[in-house]
Design a protein around this nucleic acid. Structure first.
Lengths: 126, 126, 126, 126
DNA sequence: GTGGTCTAGACCACG
DNA sequence: GTGGTCTAGACCACC
């Protein structure tokens, strides 16, 4: 698993790691049950501190993406359910996009077309 | 214009103001050319620091939503076009939502349905 | 607010802080809306590292006990609801106690009597 | 005796084994004087390290649940008394639950009702 | 070996 | 001033 991090931007590193793992799951590069590198290993690979990776893993765990096991480290959760809290989180992100689109006069058709394209795209790129 | 701010949450206040203004535009409560309250006025109304409102207005200006004039204060821009940069910004927000949805196994149909509902919803609520 | 910490025991410090705050709420020493000392202040008072207090506050926040505000620091949440997740957490702790009691032959009457006494006790001591 | 272990959770495996044995005693599946599987046997059954089972057995012994004999292996103690130390241990667990309940505004009646239900429940399930 | 906890000290975003 | 983030390095619990 290769993760590229942008140290300069204002997105926290731990969040970039979180996003990268979720994206890898979405694209099928990481499958349920699969192992992730250990906290120290990934930190060394990226060239950052262990604690930063640790925080990213803790976030992913609390969001239900990861199981953390004392023996074998972190693994992708076996069941990635679509519970209410996840739906809410997704809805909030969509809402921000929809508001901005609408305020700029984007038509509903065009918005949905964009949604369509992007949903397809993130499933193949990378 | 009534803005309700959540002081406790994780979202910076200046960003909440920005989002509220954009939402008001999307819902037609604020129209192109219309005046916004002065920085001092709005800050007093909400009960926050003047600098915070200032930052929100600056953000809105750099995103093309506002024209700021030393004499007449802040006004909604006359033309709220759909430049490439706006499209990119919307696309990035959609992408984050789409990735999370896809990683959780949400089908494309369900995702688009959600997009549909939300686009309608934000145009009426408030 | 006075918190005494046991550095020697095997209970993590951040958890001791968490427990102490919850106990203070239960006993009415801390009321909804009341301010807590800043992360750095409390850390200095106890004589421990800032990050440890930070972790305790983050825990309390995620459990709904605290609101963290960039301006005024941490405050006890206004509404301490009794939602399902809280009930579950309490139930799990009770279960561990009930199992141990039952395995030792404690009668139901005696167990309930003990529950009764302890519920009263923690509301007054301190 | 069937024990199911959650490798992913936060609870140490040796403690899960300990809890499972105590629960089995409470439910009458294990009776005083009865033999437990050997350390090696149980470790192989669950698929974990022998040392982990060893630690669980040692814990149970120090809590008075087991007698460990080099010849006959581990057996449930003949007398599972309610010494003061056991009462204290139970009391501490109850206290943590009572504090959390009280801080959330749970009434005494509701708390006792919950205690009642749980005491009944753990004696039948499993 | 793994993750969990704690310390110490730095810089930044927010208000 | 507040909390948020990151770094560096240490010790411990678990397996």
């Amino acid at each position: 698993m290769i993760i590229t991090i942008n140290l300069a931007g204002d997105v926290p590193i731990y969040q970039q790691i979180r996003d990268a793992v979720i994206a890898a799951i979405a694209q099928g590069q990481l499958k349920p049950g699969e192992s992730l590198p250990s906290v120290r290993q990934l930190a060394a690979d990226i060239g950052i501190n262990m604690h930063t990776v640790n925080k990213a893993y803790a976030l992913l765990k609390s969001d239900g993406y990861l199981n953390i096991d004392r023996r074998s480290g972190a693994r992708i959760a076996d069941t990635l359910g679509l519970d209410e809290s996840v739906r809410t989180r997704i809805g909030e992100k969509l809402d921000a996009a929809a508001v901005e689109a609408s305020s700029r006069g984007m038509s509903k058709a065009e918005f949905l077309d964009l949604c369509n394209t992007i949903f397809d795209g993130q499933n193949q790129e990378g």
